[in-house]
């Protein structure tokens, strides 16, 4: 039995180094325990990986690495083992990455897909609130991702909000940007983030006004913006009333008497 200790739930480098070594040694996937953190439970005793001086090099397709980089961020505790099993199979069947009907590949691809969606939704649904102190502004957001994506997703916010000072607080980790450097801090709570921002009233006004009550399609909204996100979206508190009012508003429009075209002269411009 081999035990691999990874430094963090998104420790792709640690996983890669260990997986490479184990695969070179031909270790069976069933004989490995993958564990995050430095406090191993003692179910199997502490059996560490034998350090091979120079692990033999072998290459894997780019497609595998891309998949692994995403899938490893999934919260499923099995992800490290599944990726290792896929790596072992891939060495026996080099074309495996193209065989999208393979059950193991499909399972890992599903993990990666869920992670990519989570990354995308974080980019979409983070909502910054401005905090002012000593004349300087900091934009702070509270977000609750499904998977271990925050560190991997930081680059997007750096590229987009490079000249701002901002923080994204999540239960597992916090990231901070001061227009020069990205730093990390421990997990936070919702109450650590500001509880409002005056611009949110404008945003809510916009959200309500851009909605077309004649085209109610709540299913389409829910599939892209599921309710689990609503509690951190300032505009979402409006949704129940907008839906309730929608059909009544359309009926009023239809019942209203039409107006006749005017000539150009009597229009105010």
């Amino acid at each position: 039995m081999h035990r691999v200790l990874l430094t963090a739930p998104d420790d792709i480098d640690g996983w890669r180094a260990s997986a490479r070594q184990l695969a070179t040694q031909g270790v069976d996937p069933a004989d490995i325990v993958w564990q995050v953190g430095d406090a191993p439970d003692d179910l199997f005793g502490n059996i560490d990986l034998e350090q091979a001086a120079t692990p033999a090099a072998f290459s894997v397709p780019r497609a595998f690495l891309d998949l692994a980089e995403s899938a490893i961020l999934h919260r499923d505790p099995q992800r490290f083992a599944l990726l290792y099993a896929l790596l072992v199979q891939l060495r026996a069947r080099p074309g495996l990455m193209q065989d999208r009907a393979d059950p193991l590949l499909r399972r890992v691809a599903a993990l990666a897909k869920a992670v990519r969606r989570d990354i995308h939704k974080m980019r979409a649904f983070v909502r910054f609130r401005e905090m002012k102190a000593d004349g300087a502004s900091r934009f702070v957001a509270w977000f609750e991702p499904d998977h271990h994506i925050v560190r991997a997703n930081a680059g997007f916010f750096v590229r987009r909000f490079a000249s701002m000072h901002w923080s994204i607080l999540t239960p597992e980790i916090s990231i901070h940007w001061d227009s020069q450097t990205l730093s990390e801090g421990p997990g936070a709570q919702r109450s650590d983030a500001p509880d409002g921002d005056p611009v949110e009233a404008l945003w809510q006004g916009y959200y309500a006004a851009i909605f077309n009550p004649a085209r109610l399609k709540t299913g389409a909204m829910l599939s892209e913006m599921p309710k689990k996100y609503w509690r951190n979206l300032p505009e979402a508190v409006l949704i129940p009333d907008l839906i309730a009012g929608a059909q009544a508003r359309e009926a009023v429009m239809i019942a209203r008497r039409p107006t006749l075209p005017k000539t150009q002269d009597d229009s105010a411009t």
Binding site: R123, N212, E224, M225
Partner: peptide
């Protein structure tokens, strides 16, 4: 990126 969805199912990406 669609930053929000209105109850008409349409994406809100731009002001």
């Amino acid at each position: 990126i669609c930053h929000a969805y209105a109850p008409d199912g349409r994406c809100i990406s731009l002001l």
